[in-house]
Design a protein around this nucleic acid. Structure first.
Length: 479
RNA sequence: GCCGAGGUGGCAGAAUGGUUAAUGCGACGGACUGCAGAUCCGUUUCCUGGGGGUUCGAUUCCCUCCCUCGGCUCCA
């Protein structure tokens, strides 16, 4: 297993990664509350943790990745009430939409997406333990966690509870003993989904859902907890308190990884600010590869600025440059097969390709520096760009070696997938016919007809480019 | 107010106690082309928020100030 370093938000430093029981790695990422459609800010976090799981898997770890679904909370209930719908059904619908988008994005590393409400028994068990141990108290049909009883509260966020402004944004609940206490079991309101409990009908609070799920699936202590950094306080702080108080074991998590937020004009992209760009729209307009490239083209902890009408357009150009040799190699191999005859690869290129793959692993293993890895890949694409027209001279083995860095990118970063391929079959016979007709028109000097054919194909989503070796075609938009 | 993360070229965005501070986009010039596009070659010397300090040397480490953003019981 490769030496990997990870920035831990608890210690605020980069540390060597050492899972508790190698090669196993338990990874938990806070998932969506699916009360509405996902936007491109959400996807940044999930694409990043997909890369974390892919990379660790490549390096010999066995990753078990869990992403919870908060399928019942105040927001869902409010939103459902507007449309006179069952909040659980509403959550189900939006979650499915998210899963489809995630699939398009190539997020395939998540092993399990537990629904919070499926863990009500575990949640109740944990709440009972907390009450029994004196960390939580029932009040007015709800149960609250008493923050003062857990001295470690604040160790992740640096927040001291006495410094918080009670009621700064939410009215103080009179049922609490202290304003910093938080609800872990919420007394039922008529008409809302509820479960029976020793304290009467109710539903789980937010933080306790995650700790009940991770205790069950990943144990009292596990390796990595990831999410966007807006969840550090109060959510993750409270998770630590709940889990460690309930089990008596510490620390809950060995590595806290927090992804930077996607911003627009410097501000966080969020529903409440109204500055969102829907994920499905972005996928329709730019395709998944461009989006993945955009996210991974920055260090994950930095804020990433999204400028509408610019960022993804720029990424599209850059990604096209980056991926061109990868696609060209794949096309040749696909056409002639991996055994194709040709020249062998010169030694210098072969060793360059091989050492590049080593450097890619090394670079990414330093706190998942996807940006530096992409910079290395750009270097390779520029190298191959100079011999783009010569690629077809090489034999199958040579092409495999030249393509190795891109294979790495495909495996770990999820880039270089040729997502338009599914539609290629229908066009594969027709387009060459059109190209031949156009070549004849050009040969006889009938450029009006040549342009007409090119325009007609473009209208159908096929782009033609003329090269010395003949015309080449591609999908004008991939999806 | 408190806690946290940031401030790098026209733009996005890396890195590092030390030769010309990545990479990409854009721009400009050239090659190629019927045109376009793509590609290739070249150029883009003046970019590390302000002020102190440590050091032979700081963008990097320390102090301080300014600014922006996130969180302060909804949030990826």
């Amino acid at each position: 297993m490769r030496r990997v370093t990870v920035y831990d938000s608890m210690d605020r430093e980069v540390r060597a990664f050492a899972p508790r029981t190698p090669p196993r790695v338990g990874l938990f990422v806070c998932g969506l509350t699916p009360y509405d459609e996902a936007h491109i800010g959400h996807a940044r976090t999930f694409v990043f943790f997909d890369v974390v799981a892919r990379a660790l898997t490549r390096w010999g770890y066995r990753v078990f990745s869990v992403q919870n679904v908060t399928n019942l909370d105040d927001k869902l209930i409010d939103r459902a009430a507007e449309s006179d719908e069952d909040p659980l059904v509403l959550a189900d619908r939006h979650f499915l939409t998210w899963r489809i988008a995630a699939e398009r994005l190539g997020i395939r590393s998540v092993n399990y997406y537990p629904y919070a409400t499926d863990y009500t028994p575990e949640i109740l068990t944990q709440i009972e333990a907390l009450v029994h141990r004196g960390f939580a108290y029932p009040s007015a049909g709800s149960v609250y966690f008493e923050v003062a009883k857990f001295p470690g509260y604040g160790k992740l966020s640096g927040q001291r509870t006495e410094a918080l402004r009670p009621g700064a944004r939410v009215e103080v609940d009179p049922a609490k003993r202290s304003p910093e206490d938080f609800v872990i079991w919420k007394a039922a309101t008529p008409g809302e989904p509820s479960w029976e409990s020793p304290w009467g009908p109710g539903r789980p609070g937010w933080h306790v859902e995650d700790t009940a799920i991770t205790l069950r699936l990943l144990g009292a202590r596990y390796d990595i907890h990831g999410a966007g950094l807006d969840l550090i306080f109060p959510h993750h702080e409270s998770e630590i308190a709940l889990a460690e108080a309930a089990t008596g074991e510490s620390p809950l998590v060995n590595y806290w990884m927090h992804a930077g937020l996607l911003t627009m004009k410097g501000e966080k992209m969020s529903k409440s600010l109204g500055n969102v760009y829907a994920l499905s729209t972005a996928l329709d307009e730019f395709g998944p590869m461009v989006l993945r490239f955009f996210y991974l083209n920055a260090q994950y902890r930095s804020p990433l600025e999204f400028v509408r009408g610019k960022s993804l357009e720029e990424s599209r150009e850059a990604y096209a440059t980056l991926a061109l040799p990868a696609h060209r190699i794949a096309e040749i191999v696909e056409r002639d097969g991996p055994e194709r005859a040709g020249e062998p690869l010169p030694d210098d290129l072969a060793s360059e390709a091989e050492s590049l793959v080593d450097r890619l692993d090394e670079t990414l293993a330093e706190d998942f520096n996807t940006r530096e890895a992409i910079a290395l890949l750009f270097g390779w694409s520029r190298r191959l760009g100079a011999l783009l027209e010569r690629l077809a001279d090489y034999d199958g083995d040579a092409l495999a070696e030249l393509g190795a860095p891109y294979d790495w990118g495909r495996e770990v970063l999820g880039l270089f997938e040729r997502v338009g391929e599914g539609r290629a079959g229908a066009w594969a016979k027709l387009v060459p016919v059109a190209i031949a007709a156009r070549a004849r028109a050009r040969a006889r000097g009938d450029f009006a007809e040549a342009d007409r054919i090119r325009d007609e194909l473009l209208g159908a989503g096929i782009r033609l480019e003329d090269h010395a070796a003949g015309s080449r075609w591609s999908f004008a938009r991939t999806d």
